[in-house]
Structures are given as C-alpha cells and as structure tokens.
Amino acid sequence: MIVRKLRFINIINIINQFWGTSIACEMEYPINLYIESISVIGNLAGSILILKLLFGEGQELGGWDWARSLIVLGFYTLLEGFTISLLQPNMKRIVNQIQDGTFDFVLLKPIDSQFILSLRIFSPWGIPSVICGVSLIIFGLSMINWSLSLLLISYTIILFLCSLIILYSIWFIVSTFSIWFIRVWNANEVLRSVLVSGRYPISSYPPVLRTILTFVLPVAFLTTFPAEAILGQISYKILILAVIFSVLSFFASRIFWKFALRFYTSASS
C-alpha cells in the first residue's frame, strides 16, 4: 500500500478539517462547557485545599515551598487539558474502531495511520484546564521574586514539549495494545491514576517511589522538570535527558505501532 509522504501544507489542511468537524460535533452539547468548567475549577480547588493541608502539617513538601508547588500543580492542570482535548477522545476512538471493525477504513486511507489516529479529534473541553493551568503557573510565579528571562522561558518550552511527547507516547503505546486486547479502556484508567501523582513535586515521595516515578513511569518529566525549568533550577543534564527520553519514547511508540499492525486481523476474522 502506498502511503504518501505528508507535506506540511497538507498536514495543516487535514488537521483543519479534522478539528473543524470534531469541534462542530462537540458543539452540539454546549452544556458540556459548563460541566467541564465546573469540573476543572472544582478539581483545582480540591487539589489546592489538599496542598494547603499538606503545608499546614509540615512547612515544606519535599523541599518545595507553597508557591513553587502551585507551579507544579499548574503544569499538571495544563497537561490534563491536553489529555482531555487530544489524548482521551482519540484513544476512545481507536478502541471503538478496533472493536467495531471500522478501523479498516483508517488503514485504507492514503495517510499515515498513527497520524490520523492521534490527531483525528480535538475536543474543546480541555481548554478550561489549559486556562486554569496557565493562570496557576503565573499566579505561582507572581508570589515569588521571579523575573522574566528568555533563557528560562525557552528551557521551559523545550521541557514542556518533551513532557507532551512523553505523555502522548505512553498513551499511544497503551492504545496500541487494543490491537490484541481490544478493550484497553481501563488500562488507561490505571495509567491516569498513576499520573495523578504528578500533582505533587517528585521529591515529596519516598525515595524508592521517586526512582520509579522518574525512570519507570516518567511522571517527573511531566510536571516536576518543567516547573524546575521555569524556576531556573534545572541542570543541562536533565534538559538533555528529557530531550533524549522524549525522542526515544516517540520512536518507541512508532515502532511498536508498526509492529502491532502486523497482528491486526480486522473484526470477526
């Protein structure tokens, strides 16, 4: 089968079509905007309350003070928005398509299947999370003596992009398992429940768990490292490590997907 090389202009055009239709679809349920907003604000208020309780007992959380912990929480909320908007709806679609057999139509299209599966849907309901996350980061920064520096901002952007890629790769690898196991929807819930640990700085966990959350399940790369970057506490080593890690995880997802496709036998066959 011929898979055409994607040209940049084509990509923009396709994404425009994809997201335009999916947003139009979601707009049919405008009440979801209120539900999502309440949900985001409620969750955030709850998380801040718990953080406050943790600080009420001890004066610090693994060496992080109140303002800096809020920044970690901000990055977590930001990533959650990304998850709600892109990862979750597309993942749900992959699982459904493989179960129903409509996945065949994806493979028949002259376009890279991983591309179409990962970016087919954009759900606008993650936007409240993104707004809240960014505001929380700015609020946290305003509480400390933070001065704008282009260097720090660029480090943060690099590390945040790395965290997006790592998060995406993990999700996509889990989704890929549905080629064999079909209903992997709850494998995802397990993943989500572990990722919740990203709400708090990695150093607030016991040492063993810290190692696991850095190297086995890279939660540290998702929230703690971008927060350290914006605070200017990051070392070059971590920066390079994050870039290598994200590239590796992306290629891992790619190779695993190609491998899994060989086992796809369509529904009912």
Partner: peptide, 13 residues
C-alpha cells in the same frame, strides 16, 4: 491507587 499515592506523600510529612 489514589489512597496509596496519598499515603506515600502524607508519610513523608
């Protein structure tokens, strides 16, 4: 797993 994650944080305080 959430309660266990919370336990590991609370135990460090």
């Amino acid at each position: 797993l959430l309660p266990l994650i919370m336990l590991s944080i609370w135990s460090q305080i």
